[in-house]
């Protein structure tokens, strides 16, 4: 467990939670990133302004974290196989919107409000993701 960063996890979780709580109590909305992406892509949908602003502010926050506390930011390494990245991104995006939520909307907000649909979704995607990792790392 040499990579375990409990302090990073706790401080990061605190900020993510405060962001989602703030958004709920100020704007009345669920922090669901794939849903915000969907709304930002819909030309005829409700107002897109805040959704586009939200999405652009996420990397701004990441950049701020690096600028303000470089020591707190762990390194980022992606897989580098193009087909894997493209297919993985595609089915993650498609699945999240068919199922109406991802790790943020179902996993965090839905489970916290004890939504039956979100709990089922979260159990399924955690289990399937763990099986996928098992298949890739231990069976291949």
């Amino acid at each position: 467990m040499e990579n375990f960063l409990p302090l990073n996890g706790f401080v990061g979780g605190l900020l993510i939670g405060l962001s989602a709580a703030f958004f709920l109590l100020m704007s009345g909305r669920i922090t669901g990133i794939s849903g915000i992406m969907e709304g930002a892509l819909k030309p005829e949908g409700e107002r897109r302004g805040w959704r586009i602003a939200y999405l652009l502010s996420i990397p701004l926050g990441a950049w701020l974290a690096v600028a303000l506390a470089p020591g707190m930011v762990p390194a980022v390494r992606l897989p580098s196989e193009t087909a894997l990245l493209l297919v993985g991104g595609f089915i993650a995006g498609f699945g999240a919107r068919i199922g109406n939520g991802c790790t943020s909307g179902h996993g965090i907000c839905g489970v916290a409000r004890l939504s039956k649909r979100s709990i089922v979704s979260t159990v399924i995607f955690f289990a399937v993701a763990a099986l996928t990792v098992y298949a890739v790392r231990h069976l291949a």
């Binding site: 990133i33 990245l85 089915i91 993650a92 399924i124 993701a129 996928t132």
Partner: peptide, 23 residues
């Protein structure tokens, strides 16, 4: 809901990125 969650789990497990962290 079930099919979408399964597909999302596969994509997440293949790459390790979900929508928020990806951007």
């Amino acid at each position: 809901l079930v099919v979408g969650s399964i597909l999302f789990g596969i994509g997440w497990g293949l790459v390790g990125l979900c929508p928020g962290p990806a951007i």
